[in-house]
Computed example of a mutant assay.
Amino acid sequence: MIYSSVKKETGSVQSREDLPIYYDLYSPVTTVTRSFPIILFLHGFKGFKDWGAFPDACEYLARHGFCVLSFNFSKNGVGKNMLEFDQPELFEQETLSSDLNDVGDMISHLKNGELRSEQVMINTDIIGIIGHSRGGHTAIAAAAEYPGIQTVVTWSAVANYNKRWSDEMVKDWESKGYTKIVNSRTGQTLKLGKVVYDDAIENADRLMASQRVKELHIPALFIAAKEDESVPHSDSKKLFRACPSDDKEIKLIQNTGHTFGTSHPFEDENFPEPFDELLESTETWFLEHLK
């Protein structure tokens, strides 16, 4: 069933480090009393919940009968402004552990009723998760970490984040305690603290998707862009091969890159064909496995 309208509710809850996690909750508008499964949407590195076509994607999934919870990781560096990296001191400290803990905190807030919809019932026993890029890496770790998650879909997921640290970055961390990265979209230079590297190395067994995917026996869909310029589609192939689930699929979308034809800001009336294909595959998967 496709719902004609969607309501978006915004708010924030606290992380275990007492930092705000800003969220948007999308849900179908209905006059019939019923509950809906919930999908968690995780953005990637230098990303945020309002990036590009992400809000439109969440609305699309909500129209097809899901509640969708999209949120900014507590240390992603984007504050109340929602669109700018105005908290660089937090971005500097955004570890993979922090992101994974944020997912657990959001599930806890859903389960205890602190995070809820004012207009529909959320079935917190039926949880799916989507992650893009680094968010896909975290989604796999989360699906292994938190037993409430019933299925996972990744979009251009990184397989092993520890293989993305360059020799120059490691040298910076060892000599200065930080390295610098440039946000190519804004030109802003941001620091990444050594804690990010140390956390990833010291807690690799808990954090690396290539390791945690070996624990997944839930349905898993890995989607990648054939011409991805940021994360090679071979990462998704590695994750697919390592996943022991009996119900798994991999899909490569042709002639498109890391964000499937979208950019920020996204103001087009229609989705580009690759992004449309991405959403249709995701929707079909959740309709089949999240019920």
Rank of each mutant, 00 (worst) to 15 (best):
E168L: 14
L83C: 03
G131I: 08
F73E: 03
S156N: 15
P88D: 12
S97E: 09
Y60G: 11
L83D: 04
V120C: 05
L110D: 01
H132Q: 13
G65K: 01
E84I: 05
V78T: 11
N160I: 13
S70T: 08
E118F: 00
S70Y: 01
V78Q: 09
L83P: 03
F71K: 03
G79V: 05
G52Y: 01
N81C: 10
E168N: 14
T138S: 08
H137T: 07
N160K: 13
N101H: 08
M106F: 00
N160T: 15
A144E: 05
I149D: 12
D86I: 09
S97G: 11
G148M: 14
C58G: 09
D99C: 10
T124A: 12
S166R: 02
E145M: 09
L115V: 08
A139K: 02
G77I: 14
T154Q: 09
S74L: 05
R63I: 09
M169S: 12
V152W: 03
M106A: 06
E59T: 13
H64V: 03
G148I: 10
S70V: 02
V152K: 07
V68W: 07
S166N: 08
D125L: 14
Q87R: 14
V153D: 04
A142D: 10
I129C: 03
Y60Q: 12
G104T: 02
A53Y: 01
Q150T: 10
Q93I: 15
R134L: 14
K163H: 10
F85S: 07
